[in-house]
Design a binder for these strands. Structure first.
Lengths: 231, 231
DNA sequence: TCGATAATTAATGAATTCATAACGGGTTGC
DNA sequence: GCAACCCGTTATGAATTCATTAATTATCGA
C-alpha cells in the first residue's frame, strides 16, 4: 500500500502479455503479483491488498464483469480493464460494474502508464486523511488543525490574538519564552516594548483556560523573564 | 453540485459536436453549459462550478493542456478529454496534466456516458469518504446524495450557493474555515476579497436552519477568522 | 420574450475585538 | 516602612468585523 512502490495485481491469462506487463511495470517501480484466472485473481486481490488491479476481460474461467463484481463487493481499489473486445457494450458493462478505465488491445504502454497514474492519483486523493495535530494536556486540548480549544470537553472561544498567544506558548512546552520573543511572535517585531499587552492577554487566557486563574496550572509566570507553558 | 442533475461544462469549438453533446446529455438529466474557446471554458468552469468538464483538445485559442492546467490550479473537478488526435503522446500529456479520461473521436455516446458515470462515481466517493452520504446532526439532516436538507423533518429549500456553502462547512465538521477558504470553495478563486457575500449567505442559512438565528447552534462565527459548523 | 428565482450590490446598525489607560497587589531590598 | 519594580485585572473609546434588510441586476426555464 505504499506510494513509492505501488502494488499491482495483474489478472491476465495470456502468458506473453502478462510477461510484457510484468517486466514493463517492474521497470517503473511497481510491485507486481499475477493471476492467470479470475478465481486466482480475486484471491490475489484479497491477499495482496493492491493499489491497483489490471484485469483482462477475456479470462477462461469467469466472465470479467463477474470478477469486477467480486472485487467491488469489498474493495474500492482502482481497476483498469484490458480487453481485445472493442465492442461498446462490453466497455459500458465493465465500467458500470465498477471498473475505472478500459483499454482496448492493442494499447500503447505509455498510455497504460498514464492511465495508471490517473487511477493512483485518484486513490491517493481519496485516502488523504487529515492529520490530527491535536495538543493535549490534562483537561486542555488544542486542535491546531481545526483551530478549536476545549477545556474539560467544553469549547472555549478565543480571539485571534489569544489563540496566537496560546499556540506560541504550546509550540515550546515547558520552555520559558521571554516577553520579547512572545511579543515578536504574536504582535510583530515592532511591539517588543509593550510588555503590558502580554499581561493583559495572559490574564484573559487564564480566565478562559485555568480552573483557578489566580493559581495557574498551565500558564506560568517567570517573573522578570517571561512565561512558560507547563506540561 | 447536485447528484440528481449533475452540472457539466462542455468546452468544444465545433458547433455540431457541441450540439450533439448538449442534446444527448440533456436527455440524461444533466445541466449543460457550453464554451467554444479555452478562455471562455476556464471562465465557465469557475462560474458554473460543474461536477464534470468535457474538454476538446483541439481548441482554436489555447492548447488543451493549458486549459487543464488552468482549471487544475484550483479545482479537482473531473475532466474528460475528447480529441481527434489519437497520438499516444497527446493522451499521456493530457492525462498527466490532470485529465481523468481521454476519448478519441469518433467515440460511442454510450461509452462517453459510461465514462462520465465513472468520473462522477469517483468524485462522489471522494466526497463521501470522510462523511456519510446523509449527514445528521441534531434535528438537521443533509442528504448529500439527493441534495435534500431537512430541519426537524421539514424540507428546507436552499439556493445553489446556500447549499454549497453548507456542504463546504459540514465537510469539515468542527473545523474553523477561514473566509478565504470558504470563498474559494463556494464562489471560486477570484472572489477571495468579497467576505461580505459570506456574511449575507451565512445569515440566510441561519434563518433557514437555526431555531434561533441570532443564537446559532450549528453555524458559528469565529470573529476575525471565519466560520465553523459545530457538531 | 417573459416571469420567477437567485445572485450581487448597497447601506445600516450591532457586536466583537483591540489598544490603551488606570488601578491595585505583591515582592524585594534598603 | 516605603520605594521601586513587576505583575494581574478591570474599564473604555475606537476600530474592525459582523448581521441583516432592501434594492438592483442577472440568470434560467418555459
Amino acid at each position: 500500500m505504499t506510494t513509492l512502490t505501488p502494488v499491482v495485481v495483474i489478472i491476465e491469462d495470456d502468458p506473453p502479455i502478462r510477461r510484457f506487463l510484468r517486466t514493463g511495470l517492474r521497470t517503473q517501480d511497481f510491485t507486481i503479483y499475477e493471476a492467470a484466472t479470475g478465481k486466482q485473481g480475486i484471491i490475489e486481490a484479497e491477499v495482496r491488498k493492491p493499489d491497483l488491479i489490471i484485469l483482462d476481460l477475456g479470462l477462461p474461467d469467469m466472465d470479467g464483469v463477474d470478477v469486477i463484481n467480486a472485487i467491488r463487493a469489498w474493495s474500492t481499489v482502482p481497476i483498469i480493464i484490458l480487453s481485445a473486445r472493442s465492442n461498446e457494450q462490453n466497455k459500458i458493462d465493465a465500467l458500470d460494474a465498477g471498473a475505472d478505465d478500459y483499454l482496448t488491445k492493442p494499447f500503447g504502454f505509455g498510455e497504460l502508464l498514464a492511465r495508471i497514474r490517473v487511477a493512483l492519483r485518484h486513490s491517493t486523493q481519496t485516502g488523504a486523511a487529515t492529520n490530527p495535530e491535536v495538543f493535549t494536556n490534562g483537561d486542555l486540548t488544542i486542535d491546531l488543525h481545526n483551530r478549536v480549544v476545549t477545556i474539560a470537553g467544553e469549547d472555549v472561544h478565543l480571539t485571534p490574538i489569544q489563540y496566537r498567544l496560546l499556540t506560541v506558548l504550546i509550540k515550546h512546552p515547558g520552555k520559558v519564552l521571554t516577553h520579547q520573543q512572545i511579543l515578536k511572535e504574536v504582535w510583530g517585531p515592532s511591539y517588543q516594548e509593550n510588555a503590558h499587552y502580554l499581561r493583559i492577554y495572559m490574564s484573559q487566557l487564564r480566565q478562559k483556560l485555568e480552573a483557578n486563574p489566580t493559581q495557574p496550572k498551565y500558564l506560568l509566570t517567570e517573573s522578570g523573564v517571561g512565561y512558560r507553558f507547563k506540561a
